[in-house]
Design a binder for these strands. Structure first.
Ligand SMILES: [Mn+2]
Ligand SMILES: [Mn+2]
Ligand SMILES: [Mn+2]
Ligand SMILES: [Mn+2]
Lengths: 228, 228
DNA sequence: TGTATTTATTAGGTGAACCTAATTTTAGTA
DNA sequence: TACTAAAATTAGGTTCACCTAATAAATACA
């Protein structure tokens, strides 16, 4: 039986592996992500390994096994469905849902998750644009890239964000940028990578590269020259 | 700051004190209720006492302080609102909601509770007929007594149950007895206290005293002779 | 290639929440 | 009242999830 706190680790490992496509997840990253110290994490990894949920070698890093992957997708599913429910049904803002979902995601009832999903209208993406896995762990796919990779003149639409911290999301909300917002990339400042965008017809904002990196978009025009 | 597990204790103490009006709550009862051993409970009571949430002396038993009472009512509120939400909005049966609510009640967000309550239609009573405290800890009152105290010929209506175990509730569901069911008390068997009732026009059932004791009703006719 | 820095690992705790077994206190009853 | 049964308490664990400090290994880079 998977414990609540196994789930925290598995989701964290999944998120980290996702974030840095292909590269290996390390103990210190995991410790940082979970707000724990490396020895604590190492200790726990040994247990997860004994439970055959992950493999770990200092050389190759941390990897989810088949069953670890399955469990991870399940927690991700729960987390994203809670976020969706909180946003769509309970009318919480997209910056409030993550923290609450962290508390709620470890409740154990598949039936409950199913009902919440139905009540939310069964969307494919959560309030941050992240894909909601199916029960079998399959993710709906969507073509997306960081706003940072745009070329000048590109017209794109916001599909999601790569971070769900309250601060970051509140910042975007302040700027009036949300999911499905159309952005015109007016100028790229190569010296610091910041990006000037225009949206809602007349509003403009200069976004730092740190921010532009975390806003995921897709080009509207075909044959756009942006890097994918 | 009140911890999750403080809340478990406070709710348990509240429930026990309620159940046995006036009588003192003891360590062994609490241990039994929480499925713990007496030394564990004693140890914890000392902490709760240091936090000024309860008073405890072996002579006078366990009592909630003012602030303990306040916290207890708050957990009770959370628990009952979750039960109500699960039943009314998520369509869980009254026998399923208690266990789930136990997991959910320790999520910390007053705002969430408020929204759930709104979504549920702000009823005064939960799916077991238990009163939902207001934010200030005030309980809506209702006149009720155990079915067991009926006199023969009494017509009464079910307002609630005194136990929320799955088994008990499933048993009632099996008999087709739910909240607001009208019961005609046809016969009392004094040798074992069981009660024969007729309802839904033609259905009859003989309920053991143990069951009749836990079904809370109110008489329909004025001047009924039933004990209150 | 050698040294400095970062990362991982080991060793040895702590505190919380539980437990059992033994003892003492209290309460119920012959 | 004296004895017995039940309840409370004390003493002394165990396990779990965390920690710090010290050491070893890996990596970066001059
Ligand atoms: Mn999230
Ligand atoms: Mn999300
Ligand atoms: Mn309940
Ligand atoms: Mn209830």
């Amino acid at each position: 039986m998977i414990k609540t706190s196994d789930e925290k680790y598995l989701r964290a490992i999944y998120q980290i592996s996702q974030a840095e496509q292909g590269q290996k997840a390390t103990i210190s990253e995991l410790a940082y992500y979970l707000d724990l110290k490396p020895p604590t994490v190492l200790e726990r990894l040994k247990i997860l390994q004994a439970e055959k949920l992950i493999t770990y070698k200092k050389t190759s890093g941390i990897h989810l096994t088949k069953s670890g992957q399955k469990e991870a997708m399940n927690v991700v599913r729960k987390h994203r469905i809670w976020e969706t429910f909180l946003h769509k049904v309970c009318k919480f803002s997209w910056s409030e849902v993550h923290e609450l979902a962290e508390q709620l995601q470890n409740v154990n009832s598949e039936k409950l998750i199913d009902r919440l999903y139905t009540l939310s209208g069964e969307p494919q993406f959560d309030p941050h644009g992240d894909p909601i896995p199916s029960k079998t762990g399959v993710l709906p796919s969507s073509q997306r890239r960081p706003l940072l990779n745009s070329v000048e003149g590109c017209k794109c639409v916001v599909l999601g964000v790569n971070e769900d911290s309250t601060d970051f999301l509140n910042y975007l909300t302040e700027l009036n940028i949300g999911l499905n917002e159309r952005l015109n990339v007016e100028k790229l400042f190569s010296f610091d990578g910041s990006v000037k965008v225009k949206y809602k017809n007349s509003v403009t904002a200069v976004l730092s590269s740190k921010v532009a990196e975390k806003i995921m978009v897709t080009c509207i025009k075909a044959n756009c020259l942006c890097k994918v």
